[in-house]
Amino acid sequence: MSSTITTEQRNSELARRFYAELVTGPHPELLEEFVAEDAVDEASGGTGGREDFRAHLAWIAESVGGVTATAVDTVAEGDRVVVFWRIEGVHKGDLFGVPATGRRFAGHSVSTITFRDGKVVRYRVLPDRLGIIQQLGALG
């Protein structure tokens, strides 16, 4: 039996670690380990590079206290991984236009992460904004 790990398995494990080690906390000191210098974080709306990821992590830290981000499932093909993940924490700052409520919430997101040489080069996320906003009591 072969113990060779495939590119897909390696990238899926990196994606899981991305959420567990980098986003949970968050831990921006791990950016160089996980993110290529020329990476693009499409969620940040920036111009590219690790600083966009740093800004995204800072926004999470300002918005969500005690954040836990967990990859629930992954689907990988080649250099791309689709991650179904869950975020949990306390709403402590502006989140999707809703001022801090102090409420606990849990939300689901789907992300696409592209890897090159074991590092993230492109990140795209589709969060369940409506579900989160409802939990924060911002809708009717």
Rank of each mutant, 00 (worst) to 15 (best):
P28K: 03
A55Y: 10
E42Y: 15
L57S: 08
F18W: 15
E32C: 01
G48F: 12
G49Q: 06
L30G: 00
E32S: 02
A43H: 07
G45H: 12
A20G: 07
S44A: 13
R50K: 06
A55P: 04
L30M: 14
A43R: 10
F53M: 12
A15S: 12
S12L: 02
S44V: 09
E32R: 02
D41I: 09
F53V: 13
A55I: 13
V40F: 14
Y19T: 08
R17N: 00
F18S: 09
L31C: 04
F18Q: 12
G49L: 03
A58R: 14
P28D: 08
T47N: 09
L14P: 10
E33L: 06
L14V: 03
V35D: 10
L30A: 11
F18T: 04
E32F: 01
D52V: 13
Y19F: 15
A58L: 11
G25C: 14
A36I: 08
G25P: 01
V35P: 08
G48M: 00
A36E: 14
G46I: 10
E32A: 00
A20L: 07
R17Q: 02
R50C: 03
A20K: 13
Y19I: 01
H56L: 07
S44G: 12
A55M: 12
A20W: 13
L22E: 10
R17L: 05
L30D: 05
S12E: 01
L30R: 15
V35G: 08
R50F: 11
T47W: 01
L31W: 09
Y19W: 11
L22K: 08
P26C: 12
R17P: 00
S44N: 14
G49W: 09
A15D: 05
A55C: 03
L57T: 10
G48K: 12
L22V: 10
D38L: 04
W59P: 00
S12T: 09
T47R: 05
R17F: 05
R17W: 00
A39M: 03
W59R: 15
V35K: 07
D38K: 15
T24E: 07
F53Y: 14
H56N: 04
E51P: 03
E13S: 15
H27Y: 08
A20T: 05
V40M: 06
V23L: 11
L57Q: 05
E51F: 14
E32Y: 11
R17M: 00
V35I: 06
A36Y: 13
E33H: 13
F34I: 00
R54P: 04
Y19M: 07
R54G: 01
D52Q: 09
H56S: 08
E29L: 03
A39Q: 05
A15C: 05
E33V: 03
R50D: 02
Y19C: 03
D38T: 06
E37M: 04
F34N: 04
R50T: 08
D41R: 07
E42F: 15
P28N: 02
G45T: 03
E42A: 04
F34G: 13
E32M: 01
A43L: 07
H27G: 09
E13G: 00
W59F: 13
G25I: 02
L57G: 14
L57R: 10
L31E: 03
D41T: 06
P26G: 06
D38I: 05
L22Q: 12
A36G: 09
R17Y: 10
F18L: 12
